[in-house]
Amino acid sequence: MPDIHILTIDQVSEGQDLPELHVDVTASTVVLGAIASRDWRPMHHDKDFAVGRNGMKHIFINTPNNAAWFERYITDWTGPMGRLGRITFQMKASVFPGDTMVLSGQVKQVIIDDVGCAWVDLHLAVSVDSKVATGCTARVALPKDKDDNPWTRKGDQWKP
């Protein structure tokens, strides 16, 4: 296997900040995300519809693509051994072409559950102009050491 980045639970501490990710959003960003997530609704590719029908200022990033951005942000940090258990997000404002979205995050809790799975609880956000557009919490399983692999857990051993 090639040399890959693997974050283990002993490298994580409560209060730790994740490195920010800055993304300049274009119409292509929005449309690529919508089509990749098979979301054909016109407010994500048709500006006239988004403005005239929805009352928005432009087409905007759709919900599944929001999730994809958060997943990418989380696993950029954890490496491929990081396994998402749960993710929750609230859309407070939409993200439009011309915006620069900033993904940020902080470790809120590090725990080992009753079946020995190591979890990190994260508070994350997509912000535009320093205002949170989407707030997010995520629970991610990490290896306890180099011999542990959260992806092998199933059934009663996986309690997200």
């Binding site: 990749a36 693509n65 994809a68 990418r72 051994m81």
Partner: peptide, 30 residues
């Protein structure tokens, strides 16, 4: 999906990594 968000996680691009970690290719959970 990975291209739309520039997700370079090798689980989705490298079959060898996927075989070693997840027992074969999987889709991003989200």
């Amino acid at each position: 999906t990975c291209a739309a968000v520039e997700n370079g996680n090798p689980l989705f691009w490298d079959k060898e990594v996927a075989a070693a970690i997840t027992g074969g290719q999987i889709a991003p959970p989200t």
